[in-house]
Design a protein around this nucleic acid. Sequence first.
DNA 1: TTGAAAGCGCTAACAA
DNA 2: TTGTTAGCGCTTTCAA
Lengths: 368, 368
Amino acid sequence: MMAKVGIRDVSKAAGVSVTTVSHALSDAHQSRVNPETRRHVQEVAARLGYAPNRLASGLRNQRSYLLGLVSDQIASTPFAGEMILGAQDAAYERGWLVMLVDSGGNPDLEERQVSTLLQHQVDGIVYAKMYHQQLTVPGGARGIPLVLLDAEDLDAKVSSVAPDEVLAARTAVKELLDAGHRRIGFINQNNEIPATSGRLEGYRSALAEAGIEYDADLVTYEVPDVSGGRDGALKLLRLPEPPTGLFCFRDPQALGAYEAAQSLGLGIPEDVSVTSVDDFEIISEGLWPGLTTVALPHYEMGRWAVSRLLDEIEDPEKARTPERLLFECPIVRRGSVAPPRASMPRDSDRKDPSRMNSATAAPTEGAA
Amino acid sequence: MMAKVGIRDVSKAAGVSVTTVSHALSDAHQSRVNPETRRHVQEVAARLGYAPNRLASGLRNQRSYLLGLVSDQIASTPFAGEMILGAQDAAYERGWLVMLVDSGGNPDLEERQVSTLLQHQVDGIVYAKMYHQQLTVPGGARGIPLVLLDAEDLDAKVSSVAPDEVLAARTAVKELLDAGHRRIGFINQNNEIPATSGRLEGYRSALAEAGIEYDADLVTYEVPDVSGGRDGALKLLRLPEPPTGLFCFRDPQALGAYEAAQSLGLGIPEDVSVTSVDDFEIISEGLWPGLTTVALPHYEMGRWAVSRLLDEIEDPEKARTPERLLFECPIVRRGSVAPPRASMPRDSDRKDPSRMNSATAAPTEGAA
DNA sequence: TTGAAAGCGCTAACAA
DNA sequence: TTGTTAGCGCTTTCAA
């Protein structure tokens, strides 16, 4: 294996000093070098396959072009991949690389990981959480540019990005309202996190806006997985006056709701319409009919977090006015929403066919 | 913000030379320093919050303690998180950090990413693929320690780890055979990758071992997602002499098979048993009944890849004899397998109850 | 047992 | 326009 080629090799081969090589190869200092010399140097560098050692330049510049991504759960949430990818893409496009650590939720480990990142002189840190939460930035990470991902700073000192939970729920519930549903159940989840209260608020405000009174019997709090969805749907659909539409806290619950409806002999969407939040595609596209659900924009949030972080790194002034962004969440329409049976007495079946069409838009089946 | 504390600050505060500080703080050179001095230095260093600059030490040592993880698809596969986490854990435990890049399958971008990693002086590279495949290591990545993850080297020059596809399929099919099924359908997938032929081989060998002749009509090739599972199951279950057990290429197809069975009025597992490969928990645990499926050990593969890589970095001799590992895949039993109806004529229902028990082991419902 | 000093590969202030 | 050189923070050889 050939020895690594350094700047001195290039300078010798090109017959110029290392300074000239450095300047010729730098974007910022090109002007300090004769265009002809520059071309020559670049040519020689390319021929030798020279690439600057970023450890050395980082040491000299006090800039590593490294970012740390600190997470509490990479593996257990299927969305993490999207957030990470968004972060990595945004970083790479601007010349940075991201180093990943995952503490599995262990604060001690996390502290050591942050310290390791700092030893590597990362220029900034993205502090990511597996679900939207409020927190205080841990001490070890202060004093370095930092942005929160899927979290908010209780002290409002650092920038953050998270989904707009209220709006997400409003969107999902409005989809049911627009289809004509008046009696809409909400399978919420039973942990005290911002999403729980936020989505409840969105649910209530959408109803209020449609002039529908809030009925606590239509809201149930279940574990946020398939079995919770099953339990909640069973509970709601067995009510004396069951809802015709179900809004689920997240897609796995919707899967459970499908199973519950089926076990009760109810068809989706003819007998009960379902919307949800996540757009966890393996579920939302896999179900039959496809699930109409509000997508959480994880890739975009990851991108935004890194963009903002780099902005603050390159212009420290920006860090003085942190930005707290709540992302809008787009709805993805598939086949789980139709007008309610009750609102369509037999003799008026044809009165408003347009509504039916819009509510049961064709599923978008991607190529395999 | 306080200025960063360096080794000189410690040396001044402790009243010793930087050499002594360096030795006192190093694991390898402790002996070169008076135990008392050492304790003193360590104390001062801790008090000042000194942590060595790894850019500087890396430059000096020609070792960055950085690993590159090059992947073609982090986001689109929900398992990637597990592989990445396994890699990151193994690296961190041995003092390394991993930098992640994802090319989205774009070879040009990948080449530039690898070059960026090399500029950062990574000590080695894990080259990961989103699904098990055979490949040649790209030129830019040669000459540096490298291990393949979920892939195999056509030139057999570098170490690699991937699931044992044949064994995985054997395990899943044997589960059906052991429950008494003799007519077993295989919903394979329609891309030419090692898993396709490997699992077919496993399917055939399991049948052969049980003395069952291979019947090509029972194997169907479908897109590897929910719709493919639906199509395949429909096709097989509508055969004049339909299978009583279905082996699916992967979990999303199994979900489709569930839907197909349901639409045909067939119950799982009473009318048709299902096994699969993946253990994609949101599906396998979410389905009702839970899916009996063979787990692909992504976390472990990620760990192994990095362990092996570090072994080769620390002892370059090891790289001369690359290891090609095929991981065994454990089966996770849930509720989708029962003895076939046909093999249990009414008057012999009680003849072999133990078998029924083992086949329908209770689902392991984890806490939310 | 301790310290002085060279040097890892690069950038940039300063000099020519 | 180009070159000489100091120094980023650390480790380690060599000398004391």
